[in-house]
Design a protein around this nucleic acid. Sequence first.
DNA 1: ATAAAAGTTAAAGTTAACTTTATGGTTTAA
DNA 2: TTAAACCATAAAGTTAACTTTAACTTTTAT
Lengths: 154, 154
Amino acid sequence: MIYTVGEMAKKLGVAASTLRYYDKEGLLPLVERSSSGIRMFRDEDYEWLLVISCLKKTGMSLKNIKEFIYLVMEGDSTIDKRLSLFIKQKEAMEKRMAELQETLDMLDFKCWYYRVAKEAGTTDILRDMPIEDIPEEYREIKYKLQNVDLQNDK
Amino acid sequence: MIYTVGEMAKKLGVAASTLRYYDKEGLLPLVERSSSGIRMFRDEDYEWLLVISCLKKTGMSLKNIKEFIYLVMEGDSTIDKRLSLFIKQKEAMEKRMAELQETLDMLDFKCWYYRVAKEAGTTDILRDMPIEDIPEEYREIKYKLQNVDLQNDK
DNA sequence: ATAAAAGTTAAAGTTAACTTTATGGTTTAA
DNA sequence: TTAAACCATAAAGTTAACTTTAACTTTTAT
């Protein structure tokens, strides 16, 4: 199968201008052209674009994705570099996900907070709530949100 | 405790210009000024900034964070809106985290892929590897990366 | 008393990742 | 065969979230 830029864009759910932009930025050195200069995307190119999309989701910049693509094109001599690249990216993502989990805990706490406030009709009830009345799972995150770094205060 | 913009920036690990920018954008309507116009951050403002930082981590835009801040300032009449806002944000985050988990699975697969390639000295071995030789946990993600949408091909 | 450090604002600059526009060539369906 | 729908490029515009710069004032330390 061969696709024009518009067809491939539709298949991927992105704008055609995005694919042209990627091409201009050197992310698609493998896409061939017809004699009249029209891009002809192949299934192989589609697979590449899926990889690009995945790497983008890991938070990798187009600049780094481009570097990776050139490593692949250089052949087997760059396997080691590619492995380190993925290990590094995986570690970065694991760190990010841990952070996000903490943020999610905060949102959980806020949802509980406003459900209680809604029932009471005011947030006052929460301002004076003794620690024992706060469900245990929210105590730590509440503390974090109020942590005024006592050690560092003069 | 009272902090100048530079001290607060240090405490939060951000640039002072960032705090001035937030102020300009209306995210810090609560920070008072000295008679000569210098910002005087209080512990209460620090707590606000922690909340802003958390909301930013959930992917909320400064524009939406500002809206939230104004909801809080409007008082108890907006509790319901704030609850919906957090529920919505939590759902969005849960969705994002599920996506990230898939992306992490992809990175896992890629790490395995390049560890095998490294040992063999070439990626060729992986191109022809029968499905049975691929560890089971990677088969699904490998399929996803090659999914050429056969149904939709003419 | 004065120099350095830090504060102020307004306005312009930066960056990434696109998108839009202007201008023109190519394909396709009636 | 011609209009509509698509393709092409180059260059300018967009957006968010800052950062930098310029010009100036205030605070702090010696």
